[in-house]
Design a protein around this nucleic acid. Structure first.
Lengths: 355, 355
DNA sequence: CTGTTAGCGCTTTCAT
DNA sequence: ATGAAAGCGCTAACAG
């Protein structure tokens, strides 16, 4: 019989004040730890009202908060989801598309008792990322950027973790069975914008995309081409790269292109930010929008209307995407498998003054 | 002597495939778990090269990833930090100020082996928030909005958790000793903008702030007033509320105010988004900026230059704030106390064309 | 209704 | 240089 008071947990005494445990609450309420656990977990039918009350006052007296690691260890469930954003820039939350997805996902998970672990990371260092090296969550979510080969490498790397995986904005059916891909209809949205431009008389189109190829951008380019398809001989298309896609790069790229090759009669910008930069540069250059040249944006997050004239664009369901993706993921955790492996959400055409 | 193979951990078999543990790796490498643990933790001097190699191949053979909950439980450290964003709107990441802080914080923590748990929450439900109810992180970070009394209540609630606390954009010295507050010099920035406007001849000023009082906005209003101070009799100031601060609300509020009370000769907007909405409305209304009326923004995140004319504004060190705050917090976790309790970062005046 | 036992995966301590 | 034991806080299973 070991005297339990003689225990010498020196490692555990490193902490200044250890936060209260079930045992401490149990001692104060003069019940066993199991009874306290039952109170904490709402199994009120297992005890008398008197006991429950005594335990509850002990809980609030010491402000007991359940230690996640004990529970997780015991249940082999972390009640946490990792969201990995692969972006070469440290400002991995700069795009409102991403923040809307993250907000939707985080809110949904929070309501359901799961926390969201957020990490931005470059593709090169993805194998060093905490969420990959350590096993601290129940599943991964992934938002990718970069060339197709880079994204493929990232996908395979994350898939090696053998955890459920939710991929945003990219098809991923071939990575395994425990994967779900959710994205918006970039193809359809881009096609719709293109048809709209052609209807308005544009024949000499340009897409203005950042150098870093997000999968959604590739999808949009395909959408543009498919809409042009039937009119291939009457409609011309060039691709202009606008560097990082920020204000300065976009304007510089456009200036250089105009110099070398002249201007198209319509520009499909990769997103609203790029569209606005282009629009402003054109007007400074003496062009009238939409009279001389038409411009479209993409995604419509608040500042699509900052420009003058207001952009014609396409509304993105990014917030819903986070939410729906989260629901699908928890469904997977509870049932053992994904109900769907591919989800595509519709976008909404939104006409402005720039076309 | 219990036969260990007779164990019946049915609860642990719920999982389809349990991820590999130290024990499994140890068995494959024919060493004890301690040796594997030593390899994982880089204590290479404790073993022969041969042993190390055998263990390392076993590790990569099964793709072993350390289970965070076991480690956390044993070490009484979670290696995770919670970031709570108190916002009545579900789009708690809508403001680029916040996303920059979060990105800076997350990147810094990630490099140092800590994960970032992100949660948005309304003030009313803060007591239900996962990060508050459960003890799953080593510290809290807090970004607040709302009236002073609401913020105070939130602060007290979070402080009850008795964990180290890093508060962004709000003084918090009176909440306890285990708290650090980090913010930008909103007061100074606003004062500088105000002096600039007055120098350019403005005498009839308005601040255009959203209804929801973020602490930084209060600070900016005080900055404006302090700059006016010495000229109180020559300079007039009104406060215009612009509802949620989004595009539509801002323009509606401005229209209503103009109708009732006419227009000031300078507007200090609460941020760049509001400034741009105001600027566009004024131009549509036939006013020339800056000739008839001058406008300033605040924070300068990318789209400050979207407007035409470009906004005069103030650059926010939001990303650095996240990073420096994170450093201060880890320092606290390692040393047992905060080195500093108040950190104020400078902002940078950035002249545009709107003043 | 309440309590006891065992063990989740890990790392510190101590023994070999 | 390597291993055995103990226990962090929690909950399923079972016993009373």
């Amino acid at each position: 019989m070991t005297d339990r008071n003689a225990a010498k947990p020196s490692f555990a005494t490193k902490q200044r004040t250890r936060s209260p445990t079930l045992r401490e609450v149990a001692r104060r309420a003069r019940v066993s730890v199991m009874t306290v656990s039952n109170v904490v977990n709402g199994r009120h039918e297992l005890m008398t009202a008197e006991t429950r009350k005594r335990v509850e006052s002990a809980i609030s007296a010491v402000n007991y908060r359940r230690h996640e690691s004990g529970r997780s260890l015991r249940l082999s469930q972390r009640f946490a989801i990792a969201m990995l954003i692969v972006d070469p820039s440290p400002a991995f939350l700069a795009d409102p598309f991403i923040t809307n997805v993250v907000a939707g996902l985080g809110n949904f998970l929070g309501e359901r008792g799961y926390s969201l672990v957020l990490q931005g990371c470059s593709a090169e260092r993805l194998d060093q990322a905490l969420a990959i090296r350590n096993n601290g969550t129940d599943a991964h979510c992934l938002m990718l950027s970069g060339a197709p080969a880079v994204r493929r490498r990232c996908l395979d790397l994350v898939a090696r973790s053998a955890q459920p995986l939710l991929v945003f904005q990219e098809a991923a059916s071939d990575v395994g069975d425990d994967v779900c891909s959710i994205r918006q209809d970039d193809h359809g949205g881009a096609a719709q914008l293109t048809r709209h431009l052609i209807e308005r008389g544009a024949r000499d189109l340009a897409v203005l995309f950042p150098e870093l190829p997000w999968p959604a951008l590739e999808e949009r380019e395909r959408g543009v081409r498919s809409a042009i398809g039937p009119l291939g001989d009457q409609v011309n298309l060039v691709v202009i790269s606008c560097g990082t896609g920020d204000y300065t790069d976009t304007q510089a790229a456009l200036a250089q292109h105009a110099d070398r090759a002249g201007l198209p009669d319509a520009i499909l910008a990769g997103n609203d930010q790029i569209g606005i930069a282009a629009l402003k540069w054109l007007r400074a250059f003496g062009k009238r929008v939409p009279k001389d040249i038409r411009i479209t944006g993409f995604n419509a997050f608040e500042f699509w209307q900052f420009s003058d004239p207001i952009l014609t664009t396409v509304r993105s369901p990014a917030y819903e995407m986070g939410k729906i993706g989260g629901a699908e993921l928890l469904e997977r955790l509870e049932s053992g498998k994904f109900r769907q492996h591919e989800i595509v959400l519709p976008v909404t055409f939104q006409i402005g003054e720039s076309t």
